[in-house]
């Protein structure tokens, strides 16, 4: 088997069995090795329009909207310093995730992120479609309650927005805060997911950040699917979690407003 052509057959000593044996140790590179080095890009339709996606052999590494092909390729290269080639075929889970906002089952390549950034993004990834959590909630969940501002920075550095739904993280005062693709895109995404954005804002203006039901004794974030089912007769608003707890309420197991206790 010759993996490549000998440049110098005379000098390679074809009559020396040792030299011949060494030459026979040449082998072809396995197929697919290029994908270990280079990423592939593809354009996919998402709920907010067309997005460019870069994929490695590990999963989706980068997603951007509002750029043309050239800008996308340039921004990928300057961030990852890897070759990016056209012609990836998007996994079906990706197309579904971008259409529906449910990203379970999409493999992500988060190499190259600092551990703090990765922890922030993994916490954000757990927020279900149609709900929101404050930046401070993420900070508490990852055991860095004082790093609220750094959480915002890490979310702004999210390589895969939409797939890791950083748009579902908002300010504690009810304002939606910044977003990689701009505040307007954030609001549009949240409204498409039918988040009760106006209600959350109205409540925040009245200093209500948690809501409870006196039938279940459970306290939630106002956007939690359980909170939205509370009938007006049993609905109670709270400014802080401590107030709710001293009134005998326990934290919801879905939206986990008492996130300080890391599982």
């Amino acid at each position: 088997m010759s993996a490549f052509e000998p440049t110098d057959p005379q000098a390679s000593g074809r009559h020396d069995p040792l030299v011949a044996g060494l030459a026979a140790l040449a082998t072809d590179a396995p197929a697919g090795l290029l994908d270990r080095v280079a990423a592939r890009w593809v354009r996919v339709d998402a709920s907010i329009g067309g997005v460019y996606v870069a994929m490695t052999d590990q999963g989706i590494a980068y997603l951007r909207t509002g750029q043309d092909e050239e800008q996308f390729v340039a921004s990928y290269r300057s961030r990852f310093a890897r070759p990016l080639l056209p012609g990836g075929s998007p996994p079906s889970a990706l197309e579904r995730a971008l259409r529906t906002g449910r990203a379970a089952g999409v493999r992500l390549d988060l190499r190259g992120l600092r551990p703090f950034e990765e922890a922030v993004l993994r916490a954000a990834a757990a927020i279900p479609r149609g709900e929101m959590r404050p930046y401070a909630w993420i900070a508490e969940r990852i055991g860095r309650p004082k790093a609220v501002r750094a959480v915002g920075t890490a979310l702004g550095h999210n390589p895969v927005p939409l797939l890791i739904p950083c748009h579902r993280v908002i300010r504690s005062d009810g304002r939606i805060g910044q977003y990689v693709f701009g505040e307007r895109a954030k609001e549009r995404l949240l409204r498409m997911e039918e988040v009760n954005l106006d209600e959350v804002n109205t409540l925040a203006a009245k200093n209500v950040h948690f809501v409870g039901s006196d039938t279940t004794g459970v306290v939630c974030f106002p956007s939690c699917r359980d909170a939205r089912r509370i009938t007006p007769a049993h609905w109670h608003g709270f400014r802080t979690l401590a107030q709710a707890e001293s009134a005998g309420y326990r934290s919801c197991r879905h939206c986990r407003p008492g996130a300080a206790v890391v599982p």
């Binding site: 490549f4 140790l25 082998t27 072809d28 590179a29 090795l33 290029l34 080095v37 390729v73 080639l85």
Partner: peptide
């Protein structure tokens, strides 16, 4: 990037053989 693919295709076998 196009050139890199050519580089890779041209030398992957010799680099992999040496590496192995």
């Amino acid at each position: 990037d196009t050139g890199f693919v050519a580089l890779f295709d041209g030398y992957r076998n010799v680099v992999f053989s040496a590496a192995l």
